[in-house]
């Protein structure tokens, strides 16, 4: 672990952090369009609008950076960074391939990932409060309520996997993954993925940014690059949640020829899950706020507890 190695790993993570969300965003453009019988972007970059998000980025960079007069300036400007950076650290800890193909192996990696992801939401709360706008405040409130309700089932579902693997380290969990974990942890996978969606505020759990009633929630007052950073954080979030679900429940790099092609399997699984995220967005209407809360407390948490009990029973029976 010399310095060069560390720098290279950080650089690779940064590249993934900057490119993969764009790929997911472009996929969302195209997949959503085709699911609605449209074509989506076709011009930017020539071939099927591949450079649409680059053009969007250029456009965002040209926009004026406005801070509302009544806003809490410092916090308003700090919020996008607080919202975005935790995902970068999470990416660092996600294992891609076998034999140490990971940014930085963290011993309690699972806890690290969940903990740091929770910090990102503070950025959204800061944005919601500091904008001095009632819609932003409402968005922030809903964000906070949603986060607190969905964090619990997410952690419980992740705990079930940790119990099954007997370790909190993400590479360790993938190492001890067996094919029969798929049916065994299927409830946990559902709970984790759904709660992850809710934590990202992706449709159908996008009540905090419901544009038809509170404009754009906490991001209402943002313009230009700061707004782009919030959007980027959403797409990095998709990447992170998909990758985590793949690592915890779909066996990460496991697959044929996993010694050579492990990274490819991991990326394939991640993008398949990202596709599901987009698919769900296109298909389902937004849940109402009370439905959202009821779903978390009355469906997901009991399911997560059932999964936890099931994992415990089978684990004891096996050993």
């Amino acid at each position: 672990m010399n310095l060069l190695d560390t720098v290279l790993r950080c650089l690779a993570t940064l590249v993934v952090f900057l490119t993969f969300p764009l790929v997911i965003g472009q996929t969302e453009h195209k997949v959503m369009a085709h699911m609605q019988g449209r074509l989506g972007p076709m011009y930017a970059g020539g071939f099927h609008g591949w450079a649409q998000l680059v053009a969007d980025g250029v456009k965002f960079a040209q926009k004026e950076d406005i801070v509302p007069a009544g806003a809490d300036r410092r916090i308003f400007q700090l919020a996008p960074a607080v919202s975005l950076l935790p995902y970068l650290f999470v990416l660092l800890a996600i294992p891609v391939g076998p034999n140490g193909f990971v940014g930085q192996a963290v011993d309690a990696g699972l806890f690290f990932v969940l903990a740091v992801m929770g910090v990102g939401v503070i950025g959204k709360l800061m944005a919601g409060w500091a904008s001095a706008n009632k819609f932003s405040l409402l968005g922030g409130l809903r964000t906070a309520a949603q986060l607190m309700s969905y964090e619990l089932p997410m952690v419980l579902a992740a705990a079930s996997v940790a119990m099954a693997a007997g370790t909190l380290s993400l590479p360790g969990i993938v190492d001890s993954w067996q094919w029969y974990w798929l049916p065994w942890q299927i409830i946990g996978a559902f709970v984790f993925f759904t709660a992850g969606l809710a934590e990202l505020q992706r449709p159908p759990f996008d009540m905090p940014v419901a544009d038809s009633e509170i404009i754009f929630g906490a991001y209402t007052e943002y313009t230009g690059l700061r707004f782009a950073l919030f959007l980027l954080s959403e797409y990095v979030g998709i990447l992170v949640v998909s990758a985590l679900t793949a690592v915890l429940f779909l066996g990460g790099w496991h697959g044929p020829m996993s010694d050579q092609l492990g990274w490819l399997w991991m990326i394939l699984k991640t993008f398949a899950l990202a596709f599901v995220v987009i698919w769900l967005r296109v298909t389902y209407p937004r849940l109402r706020e009370d439905q959202l809360m009821r779903f978390a407390w009355a469906v997901l948490i009991p399911l997560a507890l059932v999964q936890l009990a099931l994992t415990g029973i089978i684990k004891v029976a096996i050993s």
Partner: peptide, 17 residues
């Protein structure tokens, strides 16, 4: 981080909002 930053402070912020 998980408990204090992710939950307790969020709860405090929620209350303040």
């Amino acid at each position: 981080v998980l408990i204090y930053l992710g939950s307790v402070v969020v709860l405090v912020l929620f209350g303040l909002m």
